[in-house]
């Protein structure tokens, strides 16, 4: 084996090693840190364990928003099939409205209430988070062009 071939072989071996380490790192990272999306119907069906972080999406139920004394807010997220009570402490996004699409990240507590860490509303009246659209379509609440 001449020097050039040796160098190439070493280079290829190093490349494979780097690739393997990277693949393991990415696999491990993805295994630990993904967050699932669930609709209120999924939650109602008992598909979500307590304390596991996920994203909840649907419509803010009409007449469900109540404010506490401080910065806390209670509301319900619905997709027509299920309705999940949610609590949030903080400032709601400007586009947070009753009967409008919302996506929140957080987890269920022991009493079946969704404790939201972050609430995202849609960006404008034409836009609806695709997960919410899919969830509403699934539950039959979606009307094409009725936004």
């Amino acid at each position: 084996m001449n020097a050039k071939k040796k160098r190439r072989l070493a280079f290829a071996a190093a490349l494979v090693a780097v690739g393997a380490v990277l693949a393991v790192l990415i696999r491990y990272g993805l295994g630990q840190n993904i967050m699932y999306f669930h609709s209120p119907a999924d939650v109602a069906a008992g598909g979500v364990s307590e304390g596991v972080a996920f994203r909840l999406g649907g419509l803010v139920e009409k007449g469900s928003v109540t404010h506490g004394a401080g910065a806390e807010v209670k509301f319900r997220v619905t997709d027509g099939k299920g309705s999940v009570p949610a609590e949030f402490v903080g400032v709601l996004p400007a586009l947070f409205r009753e009967n409008q699409g919302v996506v929140a990240t957080g987890a269920m507590d022991a009493h079946g209430t969704f404790i939201a860490a972050e609430v995202l509303a849609k960006h404008d009246e034409k836009y609806m988070p695709p997960e919410v659209v899919a969830a509403l379509k699934k539950s039959g609440r979606w009307k094409e062009g009725a936004e």
Binding site: L25, G29, L30, Q32, N33, M35, Y36, F37, R55, A134
Partner: peptide, 27 residues
């Protein structure tokens, strides 16, 4: 990988996930 994994998963079986900042913090 972090950007495309959710799209691939969604295309394969409709599972909707997001990959958050903690993933990027460890990779």
């Amino acid at each position: 990988a972090g950007t495309l994994y959710p799209l691939i998963l969604d295309a394969l079986n409709g599972t909707k996930i997001t990959v958050g900042p903690p993933y990027y913090a460890i990779t």
